[in-house]
C-alpha cells in the first residue's frame, strides 16, 4: 500500500518532456517533488503563475507570491505571472497538458466529485470545474477508500459532481487504473497489494486482464 508521497511519486512518472502541468491541492502538490530533473516541465498554478518553483527558504517568503493552495512559493527563472482570466484561458483553451487533482469520489464512467458534501462541508469548487471540463488529460490522485473503509471508486458518484466523463486515470494507494468503456481497467497494483484486495476495495466495475504488474519506482 502506498503512502501519499508514493502516490505522488508514481504519478510523477506520467509527467512527460515539454508538459505544462496543473497540480491541485493535497497529494497532487507533492508530485512536483518527484518529477525527473532531466526533463523540461512547467507547473501552472491557476491563481496566476507559470514556472512555479519550490517553497521558499525561511525568511524569503513573499506575501505576493503564493500557489492555489495559498502556500508561499518561489518562481523559477523564466516564470511568468498573469491575471485569473488569462490563467483560465490556458486551462479552458487546452494549453495545459496535464491536470492532476484529488477526489472524494470517482465513478466508472469518469465522473468526479470533489467540492461539496451536502449539509456538512461546502468549500467550493475553486478551479476544479474549469479544469475537469476542459483538460484532455486528467489524473486523479486519491485514497482508494475513505476513513470508514468504503470504496471511493464507484459505479456512480453519490456526492455533487465536479465534472462528467472526464477522468482518464486514477492513481490510488492500491492501484493504477484507467477509465475505459465505462469501467475501471486495472493497470498496476501497489507493491504488496493483491488483485483481490483491489477488487474488495472497488465498488465500480473492474476490468482485469491477464497478469497485473506491480508498480515500478
Amino acid at each position: 500500500m502506498l503512502d501519499k508521497n508514493q502516490i505522488a511519486q508514481r504519478i510523477a512518472q506520467e509527467v512527460k518532456e515539454g508538459y505544462y502541468v496543473n497540480l491541485g491541492i493535497g497529494i497532487p502538490t507533492l508530485v512536483a517533488n518527484f518529477v525527473r530533473d532531466d526533463i523540461q516541465v512547467e507547473f501552472q498554478s491557476e491563481n496566476g503563475i507559470l514556472g512555479m518553483g519550490p517553497f521558499p527558504f525561511e525568511g524569503e517568503e513573499d506575501a505576493d507570491l503564493i500557489n492555489a493552495g495559498k502556500q508561499t512559493i518561489t518562481a523559477l527563472k523564466g516564470a511568468s505571472y498573469f491575471d485569473s482570466a488569462t490563467s483560465f484561458s490556458m486551462i479552458r483553451g487546452q494549453h495545459v497538458d496535464l491536470t492532476i487533482l484529488g477526489a472524494m469520489e470517482v465513478s466508472q464512467n469518469g465522473d468526479i466529485a470533489n467540492w461539496k458534501i451536502p449539509g456538512k462541508m461546502v468549500k467550493g469548487m475553486g478551479g476544479a470545474m474549469d479544469l475537469v471540463a476542459s483538460a484532455e488529460n486528467i489524473i486523479v490522485a486519491m485514497m482508494h477508500t475513505n476513513r470508514a473503509g468504503q470504496s471511493k471508486l464507484l459505479k456512480q458518484c453519490s456526492l455533487p459532481l465536479t465534472g462528467v466523463n472526464c477522468v482518464k486515470k486514477i492513481v490510488s494507494n492500491l492501484a493504477v487504473l484507467e477509465v475505459v468503456d465505462g469501467k475501471f481497467k486495472l493497470l498496476e497494483r501497489a507493491p504488496g497489494v493483491s488483485v483481490s484486495q483491489i477488487q474488495e476495495a472497488t465498488l465500480g466495475e473492474l476490468i482485469i486482464e491477464g497478469e497485473i504488474p506491480q508498480m515500478k519506482f
Binding site: 485569473s84 482570466a85 470545474m129 474549469d130
Partner: peptide, 12 residues
C-alpha cells in the same frame, strides 16, 4: 459558488 474560471470570465 461558481467555477473560478467562470468567475474570472464574468468579470472580464
Amino acid at each position: 459558488l461558481i467555477p473560478q474560471g467562470t468567475l474570472a470570465q464574468r468579470c472580464l
